[in-house]
Amino acid sequence: MMRAVMVLAVLVLAGIFAPQARAGEVCNETSYYVDAAKAWGGENGISAQGWQRIAPGSCVRFSGIPSGAPQFLYARTSEAYLGGAREWLGRTPVCVDRANFQIEGAQDCEAMGLEQRDFRQLAPSERARAVLVEPDDFGSRALEAGVQRLLQTLGYEVRVVDGFAGRRSRNQIAAFERDAGASFGSNYERLIERLHAVALERNREVGLNVCNQASVPVGIAIARQRNERWQSRGWWRIESGSCMRVIDERLQPGEVFVFAQTINGGNSEPLRRGVEAFCVAPGRFTSEGRANCAERGYTQVLFRPSPVPVEGIARVTLEEADFEDLVQ
């Protein structure tokens, strides 16, 4: 999935708290559920483990990290929220997997079928306990802010996410309880768990889903109109026999075009039967506009329109016949 990047700070706690903190603890003082991963340096390079899901206002502990080793942290919002993932990141590239993982000293992410994410190096005072924050510093109000954020995500009338449970928030909680057929009283932990579960279920397939039934991996690029201006972006790698949701927003007819090419050593083959020209680049890219590709350092290729979405969902299945030389 493409990243709607929000580069946010990791709060550095004063060293006086380190002796009381549990080793490797990461706390979430944002209004989002996040999935976090930690990495550390060693003789064999950088190792990493993830993912641990952290509710707003909660903490988790990462274990098995060597004492004194340089540590790195990355986090992203869960798939409960529309509009692309928000990330807490840095500048150190680390190999990660899409599912839960423990990776020892990986260096060539692509060769191992892994993804790369940019981790932030933690200060020594953060190794025992680091805190994820937003520009709005919710602090102890993170749980209430998280409830408001999920109510808003689910379409309930919450105008401001501020962590203060006023009358409007209480009214919308009551509306959700009626819809869910359950009462949570003052148990905000149970309430936010249910809100998150409902949002995940609703968002599970909304957007553009691409499945690869070809015999080799493919790279995917998309083009769509954003604020009356065309933008093309890539790449997403999809293994043979796998599927990926590359857009997680509700789609409208005619909004998205798709390009794909095989990843097969040096023998890349493009998607056939494209009709609309957009710009692409060999590595990860975002191109604003669709004209003058070559002059701007891009290559012009032909994209296909995505299928007409049904209730905001469009599905593309790529097969052998979609690529020129694979069927010869």
Rank of each mutant, 00 (worst) to 15 (best):
Q107N: 02
L271T: 14
S47V: 04
Q213P: 00
V206S: 10
S140G: 02
S67A: 12
T77H: 09
I247R: 13
V218F: 15
H196Y: 03
R117W: 02
N267C: 10
C109L: 08
R224H: 05
E29Q: 13
L89D: 00
Y33K: 02
A175P: 07
G90I: 04
V7N: 14
V327D: 12
Q261L: 15
F259L: 13
E320M: 13
R315Q: 02
R315K: 06
A21P: 00
V246R: 11
V216K: 14
V160F: 07
R315M: 02
G283F: 01
L251Y: 05
D108M: 06
R86F: 11
Q225G: 08
P253M: 07
V5G: 06
A130T: 09
C95F: 05
V160C: 09
S287K: 05
A69N: 03
A128E: 11
S242F: 14
A55S: 11
Q107P: 00
E228G: 06
G254K: 08
I263Y: 14
A69V: 02
P56G: 08
R284H: 10
R61H: 10
R141T: 02
R273T: 04
S169G: 14
G42S: 12
Q71W: 00
W236P: 02
L151E: 01
E157T: 14
D97Y: 09
G207N: 10
L191F: 04
S63A: 13
E144Y: 01
C59T: 01
V206Q: 09
V256F: 09
L73T: 00
Q52W: 00
F62N: 03
G181Y: 03
G155Y: 07
S268W: 14
P93K: 13
F259M: 09
E239A: 15
R296M: 01
G234I: 02
A260G: 15
G181L: 08
G64R: 07
A165Y: 10
Q107W: 00
S125V: 13
F176P: 03
F119N: 05
V216Q: 14
I192N: 05
K38I: 08
Y156M: 09
P309V: 01
R304A: 06
